[in-house]
Design a protein around this nucleic acid. Structure first.
Lengths: 232, 232
DNA sequence: CGCTGTATTGACAACGTTCAACGGTTGTGG
DNA sequence: CCACAACCGTTGAACGTTGTCAATACAGCG
């Protein structure tokens, strides 16, 4: 699974731009490159956190399972973002399970290198901060939605967030170009797949979206925005 | 409102323990101490973020108001925690409103000093990281609750969290020793004050808690735990 | 071709919000 | 010192949204 590090992929990332050439080499010295096929797990919830990662290519889904067994999706990881940084949360185990949604490549460092790297390279500290900061803002947005909005608005928000993170323009709309099941949307929205199904069929009737098995094409972004803002 | 910095309050905080004596002096050089009476606002949602803070003494409540005007409480700030660190979230304005719940003292730095302090003092970076990391974990816990649990469990979680952050042991139970209105609990739990009232009266009937005007005494922590875990 | 995972749909029950009215406490001004 | 207003909390009833249960359909895959 280990391969040589692809410099072309690395050089574009904000982290390494910030670090400069010398810094980049120093940071990469202790890293290994890993490849994960679609569906492969990078780490499991509860497992000892002995590595941290940055995603170079592809897309991951981080989910947690509650004590009652109900799963929720915590985060979608995009290229350039750090993940598995349990140490930043003062944890020794991973709080969630990371699964590759599509074919992915990540750099991995041993967690013992964390403190040293963090202190020596401000660029890493800044990137880690921004990753966590971004997550925190998304988390607060979700809390606001879950606490104050009805299902339809929440689903609209979820779809819009997916579009902005993973959307690809296409004739007649924007496609979410990786397998999203209704179950996924339900877990992101805090509802059940049944209700999601109902909402989406209603939207489809009005020509807002076009669904399919693990597929979704958004036809009318503006209208979706209005729904998510509570105007409709 | 400015006063001299109380070293006794400062020295105990993890941030300054980590920074050492020399580091502490350097960090404090650009800080001013501020006092806020109960109910006073430290900053307002949307206001330009020109300062960041660490709470020395007292207790703050950070809340956000949604576009529809419904408020939710985002965070309770305890002594030793950083707050108003908009820069870490890559924002130029404060995302919420910070209000002193009880008489409070905070240190304030101009936001322009952020980058310099952050790079020069790893202790500050670590503390900031831990503050945000802790918030992120709490946020994820709340998301899990809101997405999967019924109102009673959520209220139980909220009360337990309040107890662990602000509880004072007392004859016959643990008191939350600052004014908590049912409205506050409702906003933290993502429900309405009516429902909170019903839940608490039911609990009171079973001897779990004892309520009062803006007061709450928890009599049976273990049982509350069980409710929050879904055992009851 | 049957199996498994995913999706659709209807009927129904329940939980929680909304609406409305009322009771009690605190603080204020005459 | 009392009357009054403002605020906080309680409670009942009705309504609506959403989850639950159940049956069915369909696609992909061995």
């Amino acid at each position: 699974m280990n391969t040589t590090i692809d410099r072309a992929l690395v050089q574009k990332l904000p982290l390494f731009v910030r670090a400069g050439d010398a810094g980049t080499e120093a940071i990469l010295a202790t890293a290994v490159s890993r490849r994960y096929g679609a569906g492969a797990k990078v780490f499991d919830q509860g497992q000892a956190a002995d590595q941290f990662f940055i995603l170079l290519h592809g897309c991951l889904r981080v989910s947690q399972t509650t004590s009652t067994g109900q799963p929720i999706i915590v985060r979608i990881v995009n290229p350039g973002e750090l993940f598995g940084i349990a140490k930043a949360l003062r944890r020794t185990d991973y709080p969630g399970t990371a699964t590759a949604v599509s074919e992915s490549i990540a750099l991995a460092w041993p967690m013992v290198a964390w403190d040293g790297l963090f202190e020596r390279h401000a660029a890493l500290a800044v990137t880690a901060m921004q990753t966590i900061g971004g997550q925190l803002q998304q988390a607060h947005a979700r809390i606001r939605e879950l606490a104050t909005e009805n299902v339809e608005r929440r689903v609209a928000h979820t779809v819009l967030r997916l579009v902005s993170q993973l959307g690809k323009p296409e004739a007649g709309g924007t496609r979410i170009d990786f397998p999203v099941s209704k179950q996924d949307i339900a877990e992101l929205s805090g509802t059940t797949l049944h209700t999601v199904s109902r909402v989406l069929t209603a939207w489809e009737g009005h020509g807002l979206v076009q669904g399919g098995r693990q597929k979704l094409l958004v036809r009318d972004l503006a209208r979706l925005q209005q729904i998510s803002d509570g105007i409709l």
